[in-house]
Amino acid sequence: MNASPTSSSRVAGRLSARRRSLASAAFVGVVLGVLGMLYAALAPGGQASTSADPAVQRGRDLYNQGCSSCHGFAGVGARRAPSLIGVGAASVDFQVGTGRMPLQHHGPEAPRSRVRYSQQEILDLAAYVASLGPGPGIPQFNDADWQKADTAYGGSLFRTNCAQCHNFAGSGGDLTYGKYAPSLSKSTPRQIYEAMVTGPENMPVFGDKQITPDQKLAIINYVRTIKSQADPGGAGLGRVGPVSETVVGWLAGIGILVIVTLWIGARA
């Protein structure tokens, strides 16, 4: 900062035009330096600035032990796993909370699995990853919020946006090359919401401008209503449509009748 007066004294009196241009260059340098320091102070993601939060500190320790071997230190990503800067707390809560992370093996799809971390540990990890860069946070709503949403409207939204992969009743469906849309039978309302805002695995992100928070709650209500609803017609047969009905038709239907014909024939 005080380099410009010394340089100006060195060349003083000889080239006033050059002096002027050097002065302006020095001014630009000062402004950039100030801006840079301001950015460093105000922008999120700096480890030094967030280390005050104990949750983030605990989360960083957990991260360094359990996640950094694939995702790299400070979530920068590596050859085997993507960067976690900017994925947000919701993503961590979904991936770790459904047991998809830590990943058991590489494949087209991370399957739902046993949850390896406690609820507190997941929140700590989420806080740490959220501190790396801004992203969707863990949605805050309680059961009453989604339970009062419009089920039928949620059903229409579900059939328009979700059913083509997750099937009409959320039983799951197949995607290309070994990928699949999982069954929603084990998903909690929070996980369904998080999936919509973060787009895990092969799922697209349904941002709040595509599907508003109220609409998301309606979808959750529909999924949960369908799940808890008994099948009025007897055994639901997995709710996958005619394929399971066909198996029952051939085995229990015509199969039993053919055995009956054998029985009648044997008594002739």
Binding site: A163, Q164, G253
Partner: peptide
């Protein structure tokens, strides 16, 4: 079969809408 095994649960499929389709 009609008593114990549910077949064609149309209420789960929803009404037909050309813009929608279900997996499977």
């Amino acid at each position: 079969l009609g008593t114990f095994a549910q077949i064609n649960p149309v209420w789960l499929y929803g009404p037909y809408n050309p813009s929608q389709v279900s997996a499977g």
